[in-house]
């Protein structure tokens, strides 16, 4: 059998198995869940071994003689000393290295790129030459929004009086932003469903021997049988 056809049947089957959870928890969903779990862990382990350990450590160390790699290797292995309480302190050296290197590399960049650049773009002149009324309005809205949201997330002052009022404005801005984000995410979820539906439709064609339809019918029949057997068992248990 052509691997593409087999792959189509497997993809259609597993998609339908996962969708069956929309009805209720059932053996098909559980099978798909456990299969996905095992496959994902296995794939990641293999990829990490071949790309990182063999490709990134073993070959450069033993074939290319890059002995400097021994230093990060020892640091990395020392993390496993966490499992032995008496020598767990050794792992702190690696953590110190990771935290120090990571912080030194990331903090200035995040402050520069994430905070300073945002401030620089917000404190632009309102009503600069040639600005339209919409640009001026947007600038004012942005300033009010940023300031009021920052005040909402100010924890050192009780939200009373004027601070409370400004915080309420801030929370409205936050909720509007969440609404926009929610709308976009609904679009994203629909897109994922559309993607799977597109594939299921493709797998229902004669090229794939009507995989989707056959599997769907089989699954529904088996689920009906399963439900009726389960109800019979529950019924006999209740009578007992």
């Amino acid at each position: 059998m052509d691997s593409t056809i087999l792959g189509g049947w497997i993809a259609a089957g597993l998609t339908l198995f996962m969708f069956s959870s929309l009805y209720k928890d059932n053996p098909f969903y559980r099978f798909g869940e456990h299969l996905y779990l095992g496959l994902s862990v296995g794939y990641i382990i293999l990829k990490v071994i071949y790309a990182n350990i063999i490709g990134g450590l073993y070959k450069p160390l033993f074939e290319d003689h890059q002995y400097m790699l021994l230093i990060p290797t020892i640091l990395g292995l020392s993390l496993y000393t966490r499992f032995f309480p008496k020598i767990a302190w050794i792992s702190r050296i690696t953590f110190a290295f990771i935290v120090g290197y990571g912080s030194g590399l990331t903090i200035p960049r995040i402050i520069a790129g994430g905070i300073f650049q945002q401030i620089e773009k917000i404190i632009t002149p309102l009503g600069k030459t040639g600005a339209t009324w919409w640009e001026v309005f947007s600038g004012i809205v942005i300033i009010i929004g940023v300031a009021s949201v920052l005040i909402y997330f100010f924890f050192s002052v009780e939200h009373k009086g004027i601070i409370n009022k400004i915080s309420r404005v801030g929370i409205y801005f936050v909720m509007i932003a969440f609404g926009a984000s929610f709308g976009y995410t609904v679009m994203a979820r629909m897109s994922l469903l559309i993607g799977r539906s597109y594939d299921l439709i493709e797998f229902a064609t004669p090229k794939y021997y009507y995989a989707t339809i056959v599997l769907l019918v089989l699954m529904v029949l088996i689920l009906i049988l399963y439900e009726s057997m389960r109800k019979k068992e529950e019924g006999s248990e209740a009578n007992a």
Binding site: G113, Q117, Q118, E120, K121, A177, A180, S181, Y184, T185, M187, A188, R189, S191
Partner: peptide, 17 residues
């Protein structure tokens, strides 16, 4: 980007990332 992140990417556009 995915639709989930699209709303936040407008900010990246504004700050010239």
């Amino acid at each position: 980007c995915t639709g989930v992140m699209a709303a936040s990417w407008y900010n990246l556009l504004k700050i010239d990332w």
